[in-house]
Design a protein around this nucleic acid. Sequence first.
DNA 1: AGAGTCTCCTGAACCGGTTCAGTAGAGATA
DNA 2: TATCTCTACTGAACCGGTTCAGGAGACTCT
Lengths: 341, 341
Amino acid sequence: MTVTINDVAQAAGVSKGAVSYALNGQPGVSDDTRERILRVARELGWKPNLRAKSLSSAKAFAVGLVVARDPRLLGTDPFFPAFIAGIETTLVEHEYVLVLTVAASADAEELGYRKLAADSRVDGVILTDMRVDDSRIALLKSLKIPAVTLNRPETPSPFPAVCMDDTEGIAAAVEHLVSLGHTKIGHVGGPQSYIHGRSRRLAWQNAMSKAGLEAGSFIEADFTAAGGLAATAELLRSAQRPTAIIYANDLMATAGQSYAQSLGLAVPGDLSITGYDDTELARYLNPPLTTVPADPLLWGRVAAQQLLSLLGGAPAEDIYLPSPKLVVRASTGPAPGTPNN
Amino acid sequence: MTVTINDVAQAAGVSKGAVSYALNGQPGVSDDTRERILRVARELGWKPNLRAKSLSSAKAFAVGLVVARDPRLLGTDPFFPAFIAGIETTLVEHEYVLVLTVAASADAEELGYRKLAADSRVDGVILTDMRVDDSRIALLKSLKIPAVTLNRPETPSPFPAVCMDDTEGIAAAVEHLVSLGHTKIGHVGGPQSYIHGRSRRLAWQNAMSKAGLEAGSFIEADFTAAGGLAATAELLRSAQRPTAIIYANDLMATAGQSYAQSLGLAVPGDLSITGYDDTELARYLNPPLTTVPADPLLWGRVAAQQLLSLLGGAPAEDIYLPSPKLVVRASTGPAPGTPNN
DNA sequence: AGAGTCTCCTGAACCGGTTCAGTAGAGATA
DNA sequence: TATCTCTACTGAACCGGTTCAGGAGACTCT
């Protein structure tokens, strides 16, 4: 059967304790003995039993991610799979593992964290999609689960944050459109209860006023294609009909673009469109989408690194990742009636 | 601190063993005592320690999923997130948890399974994206990890399969196009090393010959937007240029559609297009995509159920889920030159 | 030489459950 | 009454590690 620490101890002619010290690099054994024990362990092909280790060290060697999202819409969000892949690249190097939970409702989300805590399934968690007044911070504090947040929430949080500024990309989109002669630039945002929904709207707003323009119409949507379409429809029939729309993600932008085209509008001739995310599909649309590449892979990798070092006792310090830059493609063009320079 | 089985035993005035029997519904204690123990446990707020349970019962109370996919392309596949959500809906009811691993290469994939096994992180795994001559079956057999496969592989497999027939939907797409007057119907398939890549091609081929038509051009692509575009380009400049293309997934179909439109072709006027998956975006494209809805949520739910009952000792029996039906939208229309009836 | 210190190692407790062999006591049987 | 059987329970071993108190022996110091 499997070889245990007892077998190694017996074969090396020492006690269990000595073996444990030797294998963990702890003091308490002489160099000779240590070497002998290590050799015997190698010869016997000993592998520590993770479950026993877990029990005695009270650690899970796993980190958790609770994804709160309507399961039917989950597939549309390109962020999570890549983000998870990023987390994984870090975890595999540290013999950690990712425990993933999907929660359909707010209640299920809280229950998810509570269960992970109750069963000590994980040593820490990563919080995504931070919300304004996010109740998870207090929850995790009370459950005593270490955490890392994506971007720093406005409410005080004891957890380190891994930040990637999305305002710069949105501002660049506004400036780009302004330079193309647009003055009526609308924004289809995500739910304003999310800090990234809010920060993108504020970035748009600030960039507009910095350009000396009126803020223009804003519609709060929900990051889904259906929401993007409805918001687009509303913007296009409004009195202040924009000549360009900045969407808070590619999915809404794509739905909006298709909708505008189905009305007979030319993109970008009649309407310029920008997205956010730079999904794989974005460059293969007709026209290809001007957008801002989020880098979920990097974000996931760094967030996991940050969490592991936090678990290792490192101080909780925020990390700032480079701000993604606007990628200009063919969905943006001169404002209607502008001389084509 | 946390209350252990010892505390319960002491408070109830019985031994640890008795408490264990009582709490697990095992025989060995009288009804009176059982009830008393349960009451005391409830009063003290006792929760079994999963780690201790894991150690003594040699179970992980977790199932694994190893996703082998280029991380950068993972985000484009709407299947996994929804599939995972489906798995979760089952697992939460059984106090199980999902351990997710992402592998970029074939080596990493094998290593992923080996690690899960070595550390006994999971009690079983779910195999997706079955391949022709899939090496994972032998691997898991040798690692003694129970598994469930999505669809039955052609090579003998001891593991139960959860099957969802995709040939019916493809055949329906062919029939639909034939009824619209199309005779040159191409197919952009997935890698033929995947059984679902192959079965969809065969379904297209069989349906064509059943309709008395030549099979037409087939191009093996890779399920990505880039691959879909390249394949479409090749089909459109071929001598046997098709008037309709059946794609093996929505992502390729979307890229193909955009590409055709960028060439000035009308969809479906000049070219009809069908996809597979029915992603959220499909209905919001211009034109909305005719496609076949895979039901990853259901598939995940049932696969997890099947795995759990396998772990519970149930015999390994295949399960057949209802075949998804073609959803006709506006990306398909009469063949060019056909009188519009 | 005797006391003190240091290194190296042992044995046992511990983490918190499960499980098994064994026993006390009640009830049935002869 | 002696024997057998059955139920209800106990105590301890066990899962496979970690950790701690303490002891043996070598070495230093006075």
